[in-house]
Design a protein around this nucleic acid. Structure first.
Lengths: 146, 146
DNA sequence: ACTTATCTTATAGTTTTAGTAGTGAATGGT
DNA sequence: ACCATTCACTACTAAAACTATAAGATAAGT
């Protein structure tokens, strides 16, 4: 029941892109610097986010990444789902053939309920919400070579 | 964001004890047989549940385990919390000293919200609820040497 | 050309998970 | 007293997941 570092970093990465939405390309180098995360690690994390169409990239000097959609159109559910490799807290919830007990399993109900609450909660929050919330909080100096 | 096998098994174990609430001792052997789980593994899982006072034990022949409280007084939150080693989806939520960014972290809010929803959902379900729900479902033949 | 930055593939160390094995200690029935 | 049963405790291990790091290739702007 832990959120992986990978997912946490990925959300912070997406937050940075949302913060500078409209700018053509924000480099991982800058994001890594601002967020204090290894650039190499971020480059791994962003791969599935790009593959699933949340992010677009530009190569070369002044290149970098940008959100593929408006921040208000990207929910935390999408991001976490991609980075966690699905949002099912149990494999048997998606694929009932994995467990022959599924039809009579007395505990299945709770897990289904919990799973739907998690999805529902994450679905309700978008990158835009994170950006708006961040306006009320202090932020360290940051460097973006825009 | 996965529920561990350990926790799933633990909940099924507690469900079995709830099902036979009132009986002095249900042996792990029987539970293991009914649920199709390794008895040795169950004996590991039940240790923290006993240590935290959810379960009491009786040794010797006709010994076994029983719930320490009424099933309606034992929530899934308690069980999952014990078996997962806490219910915090991020260590920094409980212990903000772990992260110097905590006061200005723009993503902290979502994780706090998600965490509270999870706790709230699990808190609302008790072992009694599981037993009641199970009455509507078919159950395989089972062997309890009561 | 040269620099910047993404893209791709491989790898490696650490931690967690999911068990198994063996021994010891208490208890109740005969 | 003996014996089978059941919990109690300690140690170990194989496999998987997690958290990165490294090196070279590719593309684009100046």
């Amino acid at each position: 029941m832990k959120i992986s570092t990978r997912t946490r970093y990925g959300v912070r990465l997406m937050f940075e892109l949302a913060l500078f939405n409209g700018v053509k390309g924000i480099s991982l180098k800058d994001i890594a610097s601002n967020e204090g995360i290894s650039e190499k690690y971020l480059s791994q994390i962003i791969i599935p986010l790009k593959a699933r169409g949340l992010v677009i990239s530009f190569r070369g000097p002044c290149g970098g990444y940008a959100l593929a959609r408006d921040p208000s159109e990207i929910s935390l559910r999408e991001i976490v789902e991609i980075l966690e490799g699905g949002l099912s807290i149990l494999d048997c919830l998606n694929n009932s053939s994995l467990c022959k007990r599924s039809t009579k399993c007395p505990t299945r109900g709770v897990w289904e309920l919990l799973n739907s609450k998690i999805i529902q909660t994450l679905e309700a929050v978008t990158l835009r919400d994170l950006v708006e919330e961040s306006l009320n909080k202090p932020r360290d100096s940051f460097t973006y070579s825009i």
